[in-house]
Amino acid sequence: MDVVKTLTDKLSIEQVKIELLNTAYGYHHTFLQRLDPRTLFLWYLVFGVVPFFIHSTPVLIGLAAFLVVLTIMAKVSPLIIFILTLGLLTQGGSYLIVGLFFGGNVTAMLPLLKLTLKLSVISMASIVVFCSMSPEKLSDGLLKIGVPGQVSFSIGYAYRMLPTLVEEYHHIFLSYRLRGKKPAKKGLFYSRHLFYYIKLLIKSFYPLMLSVAKRSRTMVEALESKGSLYGFNHPKVKQLKLQHLTIKRRDVLFFSLSISYFIALIWLS
């Protein structure tokens, strides 16, 4: 159980915080990053939805290969890949175990593997697209395709507030720790300590709710005087905001090439 101890030592909240902010703000200059959000949305519509209805294994493998290449190109953070694989493995794994219990056998479970493949193609497609968009780009793109202005504002606001919120939450959490008392016994598998921490995580939201309430009030008042309640969905404002979006040659090229690959795959199989 010392593993847990060293792990918690390594994974200080401070580091998690930095990793979190890195994931949220760290955007690399990749090829995909330079594409117009509309291209990416359209591309996602094809690669994030259609594979669900494809049952041909070679096509799925071909798509997966293509997306792995793109995922590497997009320089997706390893943390995300890790979470993705873990999720897929555990879900598939538990189906498998219970399936066996109900009298299935391992070879018959192959279609399940296919489902996992399918789901990973879809997840990779969304990761590739949405990791390649900076918050500004995503909110502009959403605005362009008709999502209400409040949503795209909220994305920007979330990026604005995240560090402040994390900081404040961390402070409150620490205050609980500095004045509290950790259970003397660890309990089975550190369960007492775990329970203690989770309880603090929950309790810390009470002070946070009150202070975020104060913040929201000033924020909304300021918005009011900044004209945004009037401007969120005003066509003129939208047009000004989005005037920098243009479809370039590389957008057309990227989209048509990927589609050709897709079609070729289906054709070949």
């Binding site: 049952h55 399936g99 399940l112 489902l115």
Partner: peptide, 17 residues
């Protein structure tokens, strides 16, 4: 899962599981 897995009936126990 029911929609995503082709030939669900071929896999014994999957639908139940």
């Amino acid at each position: 899962v029911w929609v995503g897995v082709e030939e669900l009936e071929a896999v014994e126990g999957l639908a139940e599981s």
